[in-house]
Simulated scan of single mutants.
Amino acid sequence: MMLEGKVAVVTGAGGGIGREIALAMALAGAAVVVNDIGASLTGEGPTSATPGEQTVAIIQQRGGRAVANTDSVAEWANAQRIVQTALDSFGRIDIVVNNAGILRDQIFHKMSPEEWLAVINVHLNGTFFVSRAAAEHFRKSGSGAFVHMTSTSGLIGNFGQANYSAAKLGIAAMSKSIALDMQRFGVRSNCIAPFAWSRMTSSIPASTEAERARVARLQQMTPDKNAPLAVFLASDAAKDVTGQIFAARHNELFLFSQPRPIRSTHRGEGWTPEAIAETALPALKSHFLPLDRSGDVFSWDPV
Rank of each mutant, 00 (worst) to 15 (best):
V97R: 03
A31I: 03
L23T: 01
F128Y: 15
G142I: 07
K225W: 08
K168H: 08
A167F: 08
T265V: 15
V297N: 04
K6H: 07
I262D: 07
R62M: 14
H123Y: 13
S177V: 14
S189V: 01
A135C: 02
S207P: 00
A86M: 00
G243Q: 04
G52K: 00
M200S: 10
K110M: 09
D236K: 14
V231Q: 06
D301L: 11
A145P: 01
G64H: 00
R212H: 10
M25C: 12
S165N: 10
N251D: 15
K176I: 06
E136Y: 11
V83H: 10
D224S: 09
L289D: 08
V187G: 02
D105C: 04
Q106P: 01
P194A: 02
M182P: 01
G91Y: 11
L281A: 11
G243H: 04
A77Q: 13
L229C: 02
G170Q: 04
A100N: 02
I58Q: 08
T47F: 07
A8Q: 04
L180D: 13
A230D: 13
T265D: 09
H109S: 07
N69E: 02
A31F: 04
T150Q: 01
M25D: 12
A280P: 11
R249P: 06
D240L: 12
M221R: 00
T272S: 15
C191M: 05
F254P: 00
A28G: 11
S40P: 02
F288R: 07
E53M: 14
A30H: 07
I276A: 11
S299E: 09
N251H: 14
G295R: 06
R81M: 10
V7I: 11
G126T: 02
P302Q: 06
I93P: 03
V122A: 06
P261N: 12
P228L: 06
V187D: 04
I156V: 15
N78V: 05
I245E: 03
I58F: 04
Q54G: 02
F108Q: 04
G63T: 02
Y164K: 00
A248R: 03
H287E: 09
M25W: 07
A118V: 02
Q258F: 14
A237S: 13
S257N: 15
R212C: 14
H250D: 08
S153G: 07
S177T: 15
E115C: 05
T208Q: 08
A166C: 12
L233M: 11
T70L: 00
F256E: 10
A134I: 04
S207M: 03
L155C: 06
S141F: 03
Q106K: 14
D94M: 09
K239T: 12
G38A: 08
A206D: 13
A179V: 07
I21N: 09
N35L: 11
I59T: 01
V122H: 06
F129T: 02
I82A: 09
A275Q: 12
G126R: 00
T47L: 06
T208V: 10
L218W: 14
R19G: 05
S141P: 03
W197S: 13
P302F: 06
D36K: 09
I17T: 08
K285M: 13
A77G: 01
Q220K: 15
